[in-house]
């Protein structure tokens, strides 16, 4: 009789993590893309802004946003967007790939708790996102000549780390949608742009009308994005102080993973009862 100990669970989680890392090592270009893409994303509004406002762009941006450092603002936004978007891509595509390769059902037959498998995938995604974030941010700062050592780096890092937890809760919710509707590509495509829009990758959410702003504010990545930008660029926090904004993110840290996991398990159960998880 197999005995499930903490050690065996951690081993299983590590194995899932290792499998993902091995696949990534065979397709190194994916990782390169994680680093290059935020630079292209940031370049678009920066160049458009230069075209629109010419020499008065810094003054206009300061008036509208609260900082004249529009380059850093866009670079941070684009990089955080990639972190959030990647968590959805990696998780959604992991599920979809397993479905298409026909290995998802076998994975379900393995004598291990689902949370351990999901934990392994989340561990891989976290590590990949964090490494690519730091590399992309450094490269972006170098290309756009932004000083990366400005503002409260410690607080910004705290917002990033704490903000990642609810993002993985969101990816569980996403995973359940992929399980149910199958069309991972379409869902992830729309999801990442909706998220980019709501978290305000190129603009503050204060430009939104009231209802849209409310929706953006019940969305954890918005708080992470605003927290990191405020800490580094001296912008206003939503609630005035950094610890109050961080407290809201902590609340999301409890709500989102629980809600995400609950929805994922419920949908998974209903699918297992009907067509089965392997159908695509």
């Amino acid at each position: 009789m197999t005995e499930f100990t903490l050690r065996s669970n951690l081993d299983a989680m590590y194995t899932v993590f290792l499998a993902r890392v091995r696949i990534l090592s065979r397709y190194r270009g994916w990782f390169l893309m994680d680093i290059i893409l935020p630079i292209f994303l940031a370049a678009m509004p920066i160049l458009l802004g230069r075209a629109v406002a010419g020499t008065s762009m810094e003054g206009n941006f300061l008036k509208n946003v609260g900082t004249a450092n529009y380059v850093a603002y866009m670079v941070i936004g684009a990089n955080l967007f990639m972190v959030v978007s990647n968590s959805l891509w990696h998780f959604g595509f992991w599920l979809r790939n397993e479905m298409q390769m026909g290995t998802l059902e076998s994975l379900y037959l393995a004598p291990v708790n689902k949370i351990i498998i999901l934990g392994g995938v989340a561990m891989y995604t976290t590590l990949r996102s964090l490494i690519s974030f730091f590399l992309a941010f450094t490269l972006g700062c170098f290309i756009f000549r932004v000083n990366p050592f400005q503002g409260d780096i410690g607080i910004a890092f705290l917002f990033l780390l704490v903000g990642l937890i609810p993002v993985y809760g969101l990816s569980f919710l996403y995973g359940s949608l992929v399980l149910k509707l199958k069309e991972a590509e379409a869902l992830i495509n729309i999801g990442q742009w909706v998220i980019g829009f709501l978290m305000g990758i190129f603009f503050p959410v204060t430009v939104f009308p009231r209802i849209l702003r409310f929706i953006a504010e019940i969305f954890p990545p918005t708080w992470m994005n605003n927290g990191v930008r405020s800490a580094l660029l001296g912008l206003n926090y939503f609630l005035g102080e950094w610890y109050l904004d961080l407290a809201v993110l902590w609340a999301f840290c409890i709500i989102m993973p629980l809600a995400g996991y609950y929805v994922f398990i419920s949908i998974e159960k209903s699918i297992k009862k009907n067509e089965g998880v392997g159908k695509f």
């Binding site: 509004p45 458009l48 802004g49 230069r50 629109v52 406002a53 008065s56 762009m57 003054g59 206009n60 941006f61 008036k63 509208n64 946003v65 529009y70 866009m74 190129f202 603009f203 430009v207």
Partner: peptide
């Protein structure tokens, strides 16, 4: 929206 931030 991003463009409007640069316009007075």
């Amino acid at each position: 929206l991003a463009t409007t931030l640069f316009i007075g």
